[in-house]
Simulated assay, not measured.
Amino acid sequence: MQLFLALCFLLGIPSGAPDIHSLKYFFTAASNVPNFPEFVNVGLVDEVEIAHYDSNTRRKVPKQDWMNKVTDDDPEYWKRSTERNMGRQQIFKANIEIVKERFNQTGGVHILQLVYGCEWDDETDEVNGFHQFGYDGEDFISLDLKTQTWIPLVPQAVISKEQWDKNKAWLDQQKHYLTQECPEWLKKFLEFGRSSLMRKDLPSVSLLQKTPSSPLTCHATGFYPDRADLFWKKDEEELHEDVVKGEMLPNHDGSFQMSVDLDLSGLKDEDWGRYSCVFHLAGGQEVSKRLDKRDIRTNWGNGGGRGTDGGFPTGAAAGGVVAALLLLTGCIIGLIVWFKKRPQGFRATNTSETSSSSGEDPAMKKGSSEEQSMLKPLHEGRVQRGSSH
């Protein structure tokens, strides 16, 4: 269970506004994890996987057709990125052993992770940068770009803070990359994938119930983007009591699904028409489904008293199964990673600074000091610059 939680905490940078876009890079090193690569690197734009490398395939590859456009200006992009990840693979492998020593661990299953990237608000031009390590599903150390210092989140990370804070050149480079270069790459990728990333799709909405005494589930599937909400209303007021929201999950086609349960135990027959399930997509589009016994699909067999033929709609059921499988698959490929959603676990910087893109991923042409010394003391005189895509 600890391993599953370490792998499956979703990275959740708060972004309630519909015009905020993100570029995130995840690095995962695994120790003694059966059937899991020792090292995985995944890139996401607006939560859509754009690139993937793992120690089994030993290749960095595009995960969206439109990402091939990056080679129009740089034919060696994927080859160079592959070579850089081969080097990172060895460094992460060494660093997970160092962290195990700090926790006095000699064996067992362990996960070391790094996430960094940026968010950009295309209305205000505000930028947030983030760079953080986690270990076994818990926050480890985080970069505060406002003060340009590292914040240890467990005692075992203090030694890293003490060493990394001394490297002012690296800290300056990190701030420049996360607040200027990263947003330029994000804008470039958004332009590459505009037709798919900027689309807005409304879902199909179904009412489902497992047994006569089960809560009623409102299930929405097939929507995009993931900046959406699903809730129950009574008359025109949103309900908060007797309601349980489920997690948002990915579908196999890149769209999303989510559900919200309503406890029917105290509901009077004459009040059914006052309830409705509402899906709200960022930007204002909505789908509303009024509560009607005739529309409820069940799985307690023919003659259950509700629904059409006593079975869940095939599409919705299949979608749920597919989503569950994709969630597990996402863990296996390292796409879904740790992140603790709590104030002290995430440090961001706010700035309106922008810069013109150099036309080349800086990480492809410059090394990164976190590659040299992620969790080890910094090597004097061996500071390399650049964060990598």
Rank of each mutant, 00 (worst) to 15 (best):
R227C: 12
F231K: 04
W232D: 00
E236F: 11
E238C: 02
E238G: 07
L239A: 05
L239P: 02
H240C: 09
K245H: 11
E247A: 13
M248H: 04
M248A: 02
P250S: 15
G254V: 06
G254H: 10
S255F: 07
S255M: 07
Q257Y: 05
D261H: 08
L262I: 01
D263V: 00
D263N: 11
S265E: 00
E270I: 13
W272S: 03
R274P: 03
Y275D: 06
Y275I: 14
C277Y: 15
C277I: 10
A282Y: 03
G283D: 10
G284Y: 08
R290N: 15
L291R: 13
D292F: 08
K293S: 08
R294K: 13
R294P: 06
N299D: 14
G304I: 00
G307C: 02
D309I: 06
F312C: 06
F312W: 15
F312P: 06
G315V: 07
A317M: 14
A318S: 06
A318C: 00
A318G: 02
V321T: 04
A323L: 03
A323H: 01
A324K: 03
L325C: 12
L326P: 05
L327E: 07
L327N: 05
L328R: 14
L328P: 06
L328F: 14
I332N: 09
K340W: 02
K341E: 07
P343D: 12
G345M: 06
G345Q: 05
F346E: 02
F346L: 13
T349H: 00
N350P: 03
T351S: 01
E353I: 03
E353H: 04
T354C: 04
